[in-house]
């Protein structure tokens, strides 16, 4: 069980308030992702939930129990750190057994649980090795194993994949998701990578400067970004933001058009410009178009077969039903 409720939580370091009053509910069994640029307070928020930082004011409740003043070890949460934070002098077996040993569990019970965790994480062959002898992915799995054996109310992940190479990251992402499906335990995952957020989350919490910009499922955020920040942050490549007359004609201060919602043509279209650099991914090609008079660069996604050379003229037509309109304050219209 792990329903986590934050009630007007704030955090200040000295005079600097990094988390202004913040309310958030994470339902039991949910996979919630905190995402935002560096320094947006997402890690601080996670550490507040874990109890590694004290709240300045406000309340944190887990399953209805107020845990604001409860020490970290008594909150029933397990955390996986960016640096894995394995104990370097202990073997993998002892690392995984450490929380149970601290809880003074029976040795036979400990052995059984370590075996079970190691089996499910594919670590059986490495149990007697030291963390220093393992690869990044294996270390990450040991860290997860150490979290699993505690049978926590919720798992907290603090950018767990950012030290892994790209291929391994995709694999570990799937492993963590499978773990979530299998255990059905609440997971809170912090990342600055919106792709990780989109692919993993049940619920994304977009943060900026300690403020929650928007909370919702990945597709909600993609379809209906509440403001310009979320619009620019979610989606890859980022949304084209256009101001001026083109926006005025839609009755908005700013309009946003996603690269994948613009069709290209060599002969006719609403807008036209010259092709700058293009990125060929095989399945898709991204064109960076200049000189449209709308913005410095308009990014367009086209099919991988479409070919425009550097400097050629290109015509663009946005899909009118998915144009996002924002007012002068950057808030979504209609």
């Amino acid at each position: 069980m792990g329903r986590i409720v934050l009630d007007t939580v704030t955090k200040s370091f000295g005079d600097a308030q990094v988390i202004p009053p913040l309310d958030l509910t994470i339902e039991d069994g949910e996979f919630a992702v905190f995402v935002g640029p560096s320094g947006c307070g997402k890690s601080t928020l996670l550490r507040l939930i874990a109890g590694l930082e004290d709240t300045t004011s406000g309340k944190i409740a887990i399953d209805g129990n107020d845990v604001t003043q409860v020490p970290p070890s008594k909150r029933g949460l397990a955390m996986v750190f960016q640096s894995y934070a394995l104990y370097p002098h202990m073997s993998v077996r002892k690392n995984i057994a450490f929380p149970m040993r601290m809880a003074k569990m029976d040795q036979a019970e400990i052995d059984k649980k370590v075996e079970a965790a190691a089996t499910s994480l594919n670590l059986l062959d490495y149990l007697d090795k030291k963390p220093g002898q393992l690869s990044g992915g294996q270390r990450q799995r040991v860290a997860i194993g150490r979290a699993i054996v505690r049978e926590p109310a919720a798992f907290l992940f603090d950018e767990p994949l950012s030290n892994l190479d790209a291929a391994l990251r995709v694999g570990m992402r799937m492993e963590i998701l499978e773990l979530h499906k299998k255990l059905n335990t609440t997971m809170i995952y912090v990342t600055h990578d919106q792709v990780e957020a989109m692919t993993m989350a049940d619920k994304i919490v977009v943060l900026r400067a300690g403020n929650i910009e928007q909370v919702g499922s990945p597709l909600e955020l993609y379809r209906n970004p509440r403001n310009l920040f979320v619009a620019g942050f979610i989606g890859s490549p980022t949304m084209n933001l256009i101001t001026g007359a083109a926006a005025g004609s839609h009755g908005a201060e700013t309009i946003g058009v996603r690269p994948e919602h613009i069709s290209v043509s060599a002969t006719e279209g609403t807008w036209s410009g010259t092709v700058g650099v293009s990125e060929h991914l095989g399945s898709d090609t991204f064109f960076h178009v200049h000189g449209t008079g709308l913005a410095d660069t308009i990014t367009v996604r086209a099919d991988g077969e479409v070919d425009f050379k550097y400097g050629e003229t290109i015509h663009l037509t946005p899909r009118s039903d998915v144009i996002h309109r924002f007012d002068a304050q950057g808030l979504r219209l209609g």
Binding site: A50, G51, L52, P72, S73, L77, A78, M79, F81, Q82, S83, A85, L86, Y87, P88, H89, M90, F98, P99, M102, A103, R146, R150
Partner: peptide, 29 residues
Amino acid sequence: EDEQQKEAAILDGASAWSQFRFLTLPHLG
């Protein structure tokens, strides 16, 4: 000494003495 290791140990329920005994002392070996 790695601060995150200590935080991990705190979450794992290690007392101040356990942190010293199992993390700091081996680190000072």
